[in-house]
Amino acid sequence: MTSAGFVIYATAGVALIGAGAFGLARARDALRRIVAINVAALGVLTTMVALAARGGGEADPVTHAMVLTGLVVSASATALALALVRRMAHLRGEEDADGHDG
């Protein structure tokens, strides 16, 4: 990977981090906040992959292991967050239904 390649992808990663930060600060509801955090996470991970590919030799395996672990960990946390969102929507639906009847 040439230096030009590293600069291109690292810039893309940083831009995505910015996008995620922007979206996170603006988001009003939970779903958009979660997506914004995931966009920022993609930015961080892309930056790391670009850093791993620097130089002329093999890509750095420790960084790759970090990215893989980071992917799995943030997927788990996102899954929990979305389960919470779904559960809250379900509870709200039940309350509204009760309010209707009662």
């Binding site: 230096s3 690292a10 850093l51 620097r54 130089g55 030799g57 093999e58 890509a59 960084t63």
Partner: peptide
């Protein structure tokens, strides 16, 4: 933070 890292060798591959 990233600017000085351009062109450096990647870490522990060797």
């Amino acid at each position: 933070g990233l600017a000085p890292l351009v062109g450096a060798e990647a870490g522990l591959a060797a």
